[in-house]
């Protein structure tokens, strides 16, 4: 495992911790999209299904369990927790799941590395992850005033994707036959979706001000 990959995983872990911190200690999920969180839960459930069939490393197994557990508990908090759920911006978070899930599944049936259950689900989870952030970005745009933890959560998620791209570049040059177009292109698309957010995030850091997206 190279340094970019490790840094990417740890950034991903940090993003989840920031979100759990916000929900658990402040008891608020204001500005957080339940749709995005549910899509992530589907992403991890389909991608990490091989948890019980193939063993890769203790690190791999532990991380998978953490991402599965955290994504489902975040969904539970927003839907069921008696205090947290009151802060959910339901009227603003209007993205339709099937507009995203269905096309991703069809695409996975057409484009995959191999026509096996594992590979089709793997491709599906990659396509879905690429666009799962969209409801969250739409919600940010609508909320305009974004609190620090929400801003940091989205920033860390974007940073995690950027580090994965560096990881693939590194692996391409150091490992023989390391070519994975499906992973790379969907990962690149996913990272590009953050470009706009990154721009305003750094702008607000430079001006030492609050993160605000233009209308």
């Amino acid at each position: 495992m190279n340094i970019f990959r490790l840094a990417g995983d740890l950034t991903h872990l940090a993003s989840v911790l920031v979100l759990l911190l916000k929900i658990h200690t402040i008891k608020s999920c204001a500005g957080i999209s339940l749709k995005t969180q549910e899509l992530y839960a589907i992403v991890f459930a389909t991608r990490y299904l091989d948890l019980f069939t193939t063993y890769i490393s203790l690190y791999n197994t532990l991380m998978k369990l953490i991402f599965l557990g955290s994504s489902f508990s975040i969904v539970w908090y927003i839907r069921k927790h008696k205090i947290v759920r009151r802060s959910y911006d339901k009227d603003q978070d209007t993205f339709r799941h099937y507009f995203i899930v269905l096309p991703c599944f069809v695409l996975a049936l057409i484009i995959h590395e191999k026509f096996t259950v594992r590979e089709v689900l793997w491709a599906f989870s990659l396509y879905l992850e690429a666009v799962a952030i969209l409801p969250q970005l739409v919600l940010l745009q609508r909320t305009r005033n974004i609190d620090n933890l929400t801003g940091q959560y989205v920033f860390l998620l974007g940073a995690y994707r950027a580090l994965y791209i560096l990881n693939w570049i590194y692996r391409y040059f150091t490992e023989p036959h390391f070519v994975h177009w499906i992973t790379w292109i969907s990962g690149l698309v996913q990272t590009l979706l953050y470009a706009d957010f990154f721009y305003y995030y750094f702008q607000s850091m430079k001006n030492n001000g609050k993160l605000q997206l233009p209308a």
Binding site: R5, D9, D50, T54, N60, T183
Partner: peptide
């Protein structure tokens, strides 16, 4: 091993 490589990622 070549087919497995990408699946070590998260």
């Amino acid at each position: 091993a070549i087919e497995e490589d990408i699946h070590d990622e998260l």
